[in-house]
Design a protein around this nucleic acid. Sequence first.
RNA 1: GGUGGGGUUCCCGAGCGGUCAAAGGGAUCAGACUGUAAAUCUGACGGUUUCGCCUUCGGUGGUUCGAAUCCGCCCCCCACCA
Length: 426
Amino acid sequence: MNAYKDLESRGFIYQTTNAEMSEKYLSENKVHFYVGFDPTADSLHTGHLLPIMAMKRLQDAGHIPIVLVGGATALVGDPTGKTEARPILTKDDVAKNVEALKKQLSQFISIEDDKAIFVNNADWFEGIGYLDFLREVGHRFSINKMLTAESVKLRLETGLSFLEFNYMLLQAYDFYHLNKTYNCTMEFGGQDQWGNIIAGVDLVRRMNQKEVHGVTFPLLLDSNGQKFGKTAGGAIFLDTNRTSVFDYYQFWRNCEDTDVKKLLCFFTSLPVEEIAQLATLEAPAINRAKEILAYEATKLAHGKENAEKSFLAAGNKFGFADKECKIPTSSDITKIAICANSGADDLPSFEISSIPEDGYWIVQLFSDAELCKSNGEVRRLIKGGGAYLNGEKITDANYKITSTDFTDNQLILKAGKKKIKQIVYI
RNA sequence: GGUGGGGUUCCCGAGCGGUCAAAGGGAUCAGACUGUAAAUCUGACGGUUUCGCCUUCGGUGGUUCGAAUCCGCCCCCCACCA
């Protein structure tokens, strides 16, 4: 099976400039293709994961990903999909973000043996003069046409600055530059990037007289039509300082039934046939499919060892879906030895170094451990019956924790059913 | 540059001198029901060792016993005109 068919069968392909040619490229040649990520924050989140997974699959199929981190484009800000301009980032912030993203991306995309190329568009944009750019690139763009782009149309209602309006030209120029420099012949991106991608395809044709193609991925939505990747504590990040491995695992484990199949296709490497099989599981057995999803997805982002720990920690907390491994799967989740308390130590933890003389006020501890945002929130939680100390429901908001509440200098706090923190007294 | 309309709590959006921590909706969180799912129902939703006080309605300075609400100046956004 060729790489194009592979992506197609897993649902990665939403739109292409030319399906036939795209398939031809990807099945007959070693293709240099590019995907851009704008460093607007210092961590990637689950929303970035879909293109990353696609890159990974293409790389595994022998193609060469050009991973573009948009140090220049982030300074301009992509208006696509935004109802208003985002705050303009400082150059320092962008530079920091570039480094952070590069690091995270390289966890997924192997750069050994020239199997991938990492670039930053600031490297070529910084040397270009305004007049040169206008004359060379600007004259090839029709305002009339740009105004028909979905991203621009939307913003025509609320306001679009000239800065942002230029974004399309920059992204198009990236494609031109990469085509000239690396013979990059394909660009991939999110569904919302369509306008920017075709602008690039056109520009390459005009300036380099080359035929290149673009492919977009579908937009991931949850069943409520909400953007995917947001949950309890906000967005799910790949940076473990922002989202612990356990929470990352739990994010996938808690996905909706109707999404399991889709997510397994996108975020694991299991064969499509097996996924189809897993997706037919009924009632409680479907949870096994979710465990596999969570385990595989966590393994990709944070490594096998961490994935195993999270699987065990979560399983011991909430139960395992298929302890005997009766459901067939090629995932090595079946090789993990499940024993009574394994993984118990791998819950997200919070360390305290001292207990006040009259005890550690329970409300304070919840907010210190970042289980709640404010003391008021903790009170509400307690009032609502969602706060637990070592498995016991807390009813008294004035309760003070003393050393007797600790076992081996540890205790467990729960906010709701799923947010858990282990408090370690050191 | 001119004229008109705006900037309200995470978002949308009402309020237009006290009864405003500010309607309503969305998002979110918790509880019940469940399968660590969905749907549904219930409650919460500025802060504070909580019922008293403190901080919030673009910024700033006024008027007033009292201002999100009135006035001056400034900043930003939108529409039309130039």
